[in-house]
Computed example of a mutant assay.
Amino acid sequence: MTLPSSDTPLYNHSLPDLETWLTEQGCEQDPAELHCWRIAKPAWKAELYLDVDQLTVRYLEVGGEAIQRSFKYLLSRQDVEDAIFSGP
């Protein structure tokens, strides 16, 4: 499957495209909650939620607390990728 160009807004990606993109980033889908994805990097862990109008990321155990950020689907895939996967 070929993803749209990285400067394409997320709202122009199909659900399978978004799922492929998240998998390529190293995320794993929660089998019980299909809208929830998890990723673990050496320095941080996060949960990502595909909501109706935005993608929400919740970084876990950052300085003893969680940090949550939301990104509207109107942002490009590259902008969201840069913001989320660089860590908290």
Results as ranks from 00 to 15, higher is better:
Asp30Leu: 08
Tyr11Met: 13
Ala40Asp: 09
Val57Arg: 04
Val57Gly: 03
Ala40Gly: 09
Tyr49Phe: 15
Thr2Ile: 15
Thr56Gly: 08
Ile39Glu: 07
Cys36Trp: 13
Ser5His: 13
Gln29Arg: 14
Met1Gly: 15
Leu74His: 14
Gly87His: 01
Pro42Cys: 05
Arg58Gly: 09
Leu50Thr: 03
Leu22Phe: 02
Tyr59Cys: 06
Gly63Met: 07
Glu65Tyr: 13
Gly26Tyr: 00
Leu75Met: 05
Leu60Phe: 04
Ala40Leu: 10
Ser14Arg: 01
Glu65Trp: 11
Asp82Cys: 05
Leu22Pro: 00
Gly26Ser: 01
Leu74Met: 11
Glu24Phe: 02
Arg38Pro: 05
Lys41Val: 07
Gly26Val: 00
Trp37Asn: 09
Phe71Thr: 01
Thr20Arg: 01
Arg69Val: 04
Gly64Ile: 13
Glu47Arg: 13
Ser5Asp: 15
Glu19Pro: 00
Arg69Thr: 04
Gln25His: 02
Gly26Ala: 00
Met1Gln: 14
Pro31Glu: 07
Thr56Tyr: 09
Leu22Gly: 01
Glu28Cys: 06
Leu50Pro: 08
Thr20Leu: 04
Ser14Phe: 02
Val52Met: 09
Ala43Tyr: 10
Glu19Thr: 01
Cys36Lys: 14
Pro31His: 07
Glu28Ile: 04
Asp17Pro: 02
Ala32Gly: 12
Leu60Ser: 04
Ala66Val: 10
Thr2Arg: 14
Glu28Arg: 06
Thr56Ser: 13
Cys36Ser: 11
Leu50Met: 10
Ala32Phe: 13
Glu24Asp: 00
Pro16Asn: 05
Asp51Ile: 08
Leu18Asp: 07
Val52Cys: 07
Thr8Lys: 09
Gly87Tyr: 01
Leu34Gln: 15
His13Lys: 02
Ser6Pro: 09
Lys41Thr: 10
Leu48Ala: 01
Ala66Cys: 13
Trp44Thr: 05
Ala46Trp: 03
Asn12Ile: 03
Val62Ala: 08
Gln68Ile: 12
Lys41Gly: 08
Thr20Ser: 02
Cys27Trp: 00
Pro16Gly: 04
Leu3Val: 11
Glu33Ser: 10
Thr23Asp: 00
Gln68Thr: 15
Tyr11Gly: 06
Gln68Ser: 08
Leu75Trp: 03
Arg69Met: 06
Leu34Asp: 11
His35Phe: 14
Asp79Val: 07
Leu3Phe: 08
Lys45Asp: 10
Ile84Leu: 05
Leu15Met: 02
Val57Lys: 04
